[in-house]
Write a protein that binds this DNA or RNA. Structure first.
Lengths: 210, 210
DNA sequence: CATCTAATTAGATGTTGATATAATTAGATG
DNA sequence: CATCTAATTATATCAACATCTAATTAGATG
């Protein structure tokens, strides 16, 4: 865990407190699309104007929203796109299953059964620390239909068109299962990967035979 | 803005509410490092046990923490590493400038001289493709002052407090220079890393001798 | 200047929730 | 079984805050 000093902690918690309110969250959601007057917001959110005013003022104090005046009307809009991005992050974190594309129920079931999601691993590089979720293959399915699902999944580890040596293929597969040789052979057998002169590659889906 | 339905909104706000508390945030920070008993947490956070119990129960209800019992002791630890990642995200969003630290001219010069930045490498994982800039150590400095700068830099690859096996240390160091054994020894000699029974770790700057 | 519109500020109210003390449960140990 | 340790539940208290009504400010318009 990253060390967090007191001041920083206060700030983060404060920021989270601002977000952790239903009305303000909806407010932010609206204001991220276009500018609104207080009255409009009150109507949409079914709150009284003073309540909305209170909230937007709060958001303004936290530099999350900016105001433009026109006559007696005050137009508010989201200030930092950072907030926008943050929400997106939060969303994917909170409800990650929404984010990844569906696939069939069968596929999902097979993947869930055979893959085991391990914690996050940290990679430290000059440019910062990357966190990558690691996944292992509990066992290699014997049923061909399930096998294909698993192999397709593993294939995603390889860039389409890129050439890999046998050693490189093994390294990548070994991250999932010690028996990389079997996986490699099965990938070739199922035409999920191609081989020629000990060079492996992945064809684009359109070229690959089914 | 992403469309958010009522149920989802509730969940997000609830999740944020859980995080938006100083004690719980610190709790999570601690529990992301290792498991703690309620008593230990109470002592570190300077709270009474019932208070901690209340919070960890709350975290448990939200599936953010898990418990293991041993005698009368209840060991808690962070459940989803997703929370971990989330915090980091939040941190970089909230205070991005904090993340990178400046360093002196001398340090910068040494780092520039001894490190070589190689191109971008791609890592393919279940969750997408990561591009990471790789850096190598051209040679190990012999002048002690320069050596320390380089070793300090390498130390950043290790999470403070985390325990590493000798093998893990080598793996990480080998990314920079083939002679990982020398680097490892020098790190220990210079008290940049600590060793006991072939277990290596990095102390926080305050504890480390200068 | 009187009036209208839109928003904010002031003040009141009710709820939630963070924390504490005290009592209770559950496991371990002599 | 008595006792000790660790944690939880029950209950109480206090502060924070979301919301409302009422009063006030500020700009526009006849």
């Amino acid at each position: 865990m990253v060390q967090i000093d007191a001041r920083e902690l206060e700030q983060i918690v404060l920021f989270l407190k601002v977000l952790a309110d239903k009305s303000r969250f909806r407010l932010i959601a609206l204001l991220s699309e276009r500018e609104y007057t207080v009255g409009e917001l009150a109507e949409v959110l079914e709150l009284k104007e003073p309540t909305v005013s209170w909230h937007v003022t709060m958001l303004r104090n936290h530099d999350m929203v900016e105001m433009r005046q026109e006559g007696t009307s005050h137009f508010y809009k989201l200030k930092q796109e950072g907030v926008h991005a943050l929400l997106k992050d939060l969303k994917t974190k909170v409800a990650p299953e929404e984010s990844l594309d569906a696939g069939s129920d069968f596929e999902r079931h097979v993947l869930e059964t055979f893959f085991q999601h391990e914690g996050v691993k940290e990679y430290h590089t000059p440019d910062g620390t990357f966190q990558i979720t690691h996944t292992r293959l509990k066992e290699i399915p014997t049923q061909r239909k399930k096998q294909v699902v698993v192999l397709e999944r593993l294939a995603q580890e390889f860039v389409i068109g890129q050439r890999y040596s046998e050693k490189e293929v093994n390294t990548i597969l070994k991250r999932f299962h010690p028996d990389c040789a079997t996986l490699r052979r099965q990938m070739v057998d199922n035409r999920i990967m191609r081989r020629e002169n000990s060079i492996y590659w992945r064809d684009s889906p359109s070229e690959a035979s089914v």
